[in-house]
């Protein structure tokens, strides 16, 4: 043991080179361990089959003016409302400086007739009511979240209650006048 721990014949230069060798080995080993860790971590990310379903196409031709549908996109509901003239007017008429999360209606729709939003309350993730006929639509003619009483208007903006932000607008494109691809 003694002979091992006292490299009596080594020059300092030599021991410096040897230290470098050890650090290099540790470094390369660490790189290897990290490259092994990445596929393990990455395996928990959305897989190919999940990503393949990440966009859906919706046929809008069956939705009458004044009604709304719920479709499932990425495991969450998306509300698509065919808005009436009155609802569009209401949404546009709001003074945005009075809003909790100021956004104009024009920023939230591509085509004023169609409001497309993710139907998950931005407070704690409940599903707001107001999509199906006869459900309470809150004080602002939009949606009402029963969990903690958030009121959303006909543009899906938060008007009253604990939610911090407006209902999210997913990325979507109109493929034709009556079909839209969400995602």
């Amino acid at each position: 043991m003694a002979e091992a721990t006292q490299p009596n014949s080594d020059h300092e230069e030599d021991s410096g080179r040897r230290d470098f060798l050890n650090y290099l080995a540790i470094g390369v080993g660490a790189v290897g361990a990290a490259s092994f860790a990445w596929p393990i971590i990455n395996s928990m990310n959305p897989s190919k089959d999940v990503l393949a379903l990440a966009s859906i196409e919706v046929d809008l031709s069956q939705i009458d003016v004044g009604s709304a549908i719920k479709v499932v996109w990425r495991g969450k509901p998306v509300f698509i409302r065919h808005r009436t003239e009155k609802e569009i007017e209401e949404a546009k008429a709001v003074d945005i400086s009075t809003l909790i999360d100021p956004e104009t209606d024009a920023d939230r729709v591509q085509n004023a007739d169609w409001l497309i939003i993710v139907g998950v309350c931005t407070h704690l993730g409940c599903i707001p009511m107001g999509t199906a006929d006869g459900e309470p639509r809150g004080e602002y003619d939009g949606w009402f979240c029963p969990c903690h009483g958030s009121h959303y208007d006909s543009s899906g903006r938060i008007r009253k209650g604990p939610s911090p932000t407006n209902l999210l607008v997913p990325t979507y494109t109109f493929l034709t006048d009556s079909t839209v691809r969400i995602g």
């Binding site: 990455n42 395996s43 897989s47």
Partner: peptide
């Protein structure tokens, strides 16, 4: 990623092989 059910187990393993990120490696 695996599903212990006689109807799904085989396909869930193949899903690991084909669709899960680096699933084939694991």
């Amino acid at each position: 990623q695996y599903t212990p059910n006689v109807d799904l187990a085989f396909n869930s393993v193949e899903r690991i092989m084909r669709d899960v990120n680096s699933g084939w490696l694991l």
